[in-house]
């Protein structure tokens, strides 16, 4: 089972992602509604991949990743950003910030799992 930490402030989108990923049976999912809560969650959960929403109240996805990178266990964990601002310049910026992949919103829930698998190789 691949362990995913999904950080997303929109409850509906969290639910869709959960349905989509759990149905495949290949993922174990922990979801948080903010970067702050995600940083607490990683004390007891070490994900294989980070799935981070970019625009969130409080800490952004990028800020959340910066702080997670300071945790030795997460310094190399692949990070996938989900963003509604998926223009070329923003994608480049996120890649520069350490994103392994960027999924633009609205995303296809049917192919979400396979996109994540592709990143993990």
């Amino acid at each position: 089972m691949i362990k995913i930490l999904h950080v997303e402030d929109d409850a509906d989108i969290r639910e869709i992602a959960q349905l989509s990923l759990e149905l495949s049976g290949e993922f174990e999912l922990v979801q948080c509604e903010s970067g702050e809560k995600a940083l607490e969650a990683v004390n007891s959960f070490t994900p294989d991949v980070l799935l981070l929403d970019m625009m969130m109240p409080g800490m952004t996805g990028r800020q959340t990743l910066e702080l997670m990178r300071q945790i030795p266990a997460l310094s190399e964990t692949p990070a996938i950003f989900m963003t509604a601002r998926a223009q070329h310049a923003e994608i480049e910026e996120l890649r520069f910030a350490g994103a392994a992949h960027v999924i633009s919103k609205p995303f296809d829930p049917v192919s979400l799992g396979s996109e994540i698998m592709e990143v993990l190789g």
């Binding site: 929109d10 509906d12 989108i13 869709i16 509604a84 609205p106 995303f107």
Partner: peptide, 17 residues
Amino acid sequence: SHELRSPLTAIKGSMGL
């Protein structure tokens, strides 16, 4: 435009599933 994408993600995602 970007704010519209969040509800659309939920709508399209639900229907897609």
